[in-house]
Structures are given as C-alpha cells and as structure tokens.
Simulated assay, not measured.
Amino acid sequence: MKTIGTDINAAVLKGTDMLNRHPREGTASLLILLTDGDPTSGVTNLEQIYKNVKEAIDGKFPLYCLGFGMDVKFEFLEKMALENKGVGRRIYEDSDAALQLQGFYEEVATPLLTDVQMVYLGGANLTQTNFSQYYNGSEIVVAGQITDNNIAEFTAEVIAISKSNKVKYSRTTTTEEPIKASSDSNIQRLWAYLTVKQLLDKEVKSSGDEKEKVKKETLDLCLKYGFVTPLTSMVVTKPQGEDSQVAHKPKEGEKPRGTMLDTQASRVRGSRVNTET
C-alpha cells in the first residue's frame, strides 16, 4: 500500500520548473510554498533539500514559505526561504487564517522593482543595501553613519530592474557647513534594530562556530539597546496580591488549544505579477 506523505522537495522543484519553462518578459516571478507538515516522503534530509532548492532557483526569484500551525518545522522553512531571497511566515490556525493569507498576498502582489541596490557615497556601517524585490506599499529603510563630517556632498543612488530595464535614481545633497556630530538615540536605535533583524536572519542560515559568533553579536546589541528578541527575555511584574500567570511561547510540534486543521500534503504555487514603473 502506497503511503501518502509530504514531499516538500518535489513540490518546490516542480514549482521552480514551471516558472523556468514559461518565462514572461516584463514580469517578476516568485514562488510561494504552503505547507502544514514536515518533509516525510521523497527527499527528507533537510540539508539535501536546501541544496536542491537553492540550485534549482539559482537566485532567479524569491521563495516564500508559509507554514500552517505549530506542527510545521518552521526553522526549516525559514532557513530555506532566507537562502533564496524570501521570508518564512507562520500562519496561525485560527478563524482569521484566510485573512492572514490575504494579507500576505497583498504584500507581494505588486512588485515594482527587482534586484534593488542602494548606494550611499560617503556612508559607512550600513545596514542591508541589496534587496531582491520592492513591492507596492512596502518600504526600504537603510541606516548607517557619515564618517567624514567635512563632506561637501552626500549622494544616494538606487539601482534596480523595472520591466526588464535597468533604472537608476540619484540624488545629491550639498552641505554648506560641516555636519555636526549627532548622538540622536532614536537614529542609533533604528540602526541597531535593523542590524539585529539582519543578524537574526543570518543566524538562521549559519551553522557551527559562525552561528555562535552571530548569536553573540546579536545578543550584545540586544542587551545594549534593550530589545526583546528570541535570544532575550522580557520580565513583567504584577502588583502583590494578584494571581500570576506565565505565558510561554508555543513549541514546535506542540498543538495549541483549539481546532486544528487536518494534516494535508504540502502545496506549492508559482505566480507571476506584472511589474509597474
């Protein structure tokens, strides 16, 4: 008797093949994986799946992984998405699951630019400056430092692809007086916040000594700026005499209270959306 399982490797490779075999000029491709389980059939070795998917996609389009509920191996989905210029998102099994899916689709429905590069001449210690996609309604924020306070001009450039054409936007700001050194805590916290987010993504993709190094760097920034992350904790005290309740983060594979969706095989959907200028 043939056993039915979840073949995530085959699903993603099939979707990738569909997009590669039917290219359309002036469109931006993306691949969305929806699954409520772990790889239980076909290729089940996670490292092999990472390798197969990365080689198949080859940086041509982003992969978004949506995992339903707490049974899914979310760390696996998140790492696979990050390695392919996408993101992992957990869809919580609740009455608004359909709204969560709709909200995600609205985020990625209208790509305006691809292969976005942000260039700041005279900037240093910059946060992420390369982005695979820029979507309508989204924003890109880059933070950094100007190391030369006597700089006369500061130039910002955006280089990207729009409808298969390379575009470049440039703006130069002229300073009549030397830039005054600023210790604005809000700007510093913004830089630290963006850096921590990127380090957490890097930590997911890393392994061994590199993973521990990134984790330590992230933790140091979190403690310095008081950020609550998966590596830190937040303690809330209640007035004396009141009953205390402790809320724990649900663990992978632990079913929360409430109705659970029936386990289904993974589904993958490749889509293209016309880009706009």
Rank of each mutant, 00 (worst) to 15 (best):
D71L: 15
V141P: 07
L121M: 12
T3E: 13
F227T: 00
A56H: 10
V12E: 04
K255W: 10
V196Q: 01
E276D: 09
T40Y: 01
T259W: 12
F68N: 04
I57G: 00
G86Q: 09
E210I: 02
Q117K: 10
K216D: 13
D209N: 11
K180Q: 15
T218Y: 05
Y50W: 05
G26S: 03
R89W: 15
T155S: 03
A28I: 02
V108T: 13
E107H: 10
M234N: 13
Y225I: 09
K73P: 13
T173W: 12
G67W: 01
K168W: 11
M18F: 12
L231E: 06
S132P: 12
N150S: 14
D36V: 04
K213S: 14
K166L: 07
A98K: 10
G241F: 11
T232L: 12
Y50P: 02
T218H: 05
A81T: 05
G5I: 07
L199A: 04
H248F: 06
L63S: 11
D201N: 08
E78S: 06
T35Q: 09
S162E: 05
Q102K: 13
T174L: 07
L13M: 02
G69Q: 06
E153I: 00
H22S: 00
V204S: 09
R24E: 01
G144V: 08
D262Y: 11
I187W: 07
G88I: 02
F61Y: 14
L31C: 01
N125Q: 06
P239Q: 14
K205G: 06
G69M: 11
V236A: 04
Q128G: 03
V204W: 09
Q117Y: 11
T35S: 11
A56F: 03
D262H: 08
S207V: 15
L194Y: 06
P62F: 13
H248W: 07
S162T: 08
E107P: 03
D209G: 08
T275L: 15
T35C: 11
D148L: 04
S29R: 01
N9R: 09
D71S: 10
G137H: 11
L63M: 13
T155F: 00
V108W: 14
K60W: 02
G137K: 12
Y105E: 11
L33T: 04
Q128H: 13
I140T: 01
L199P: 03
L113A: 01
Q245T: 10
Y92H: 10
D71K: 06
I49V: 05
G37P: 02
L126H: 05
L99C: 09
G258D: 10
K14P: 01
E83G: 00
P250L: 07
L113V: 02
G37E: 02
V236T: 02
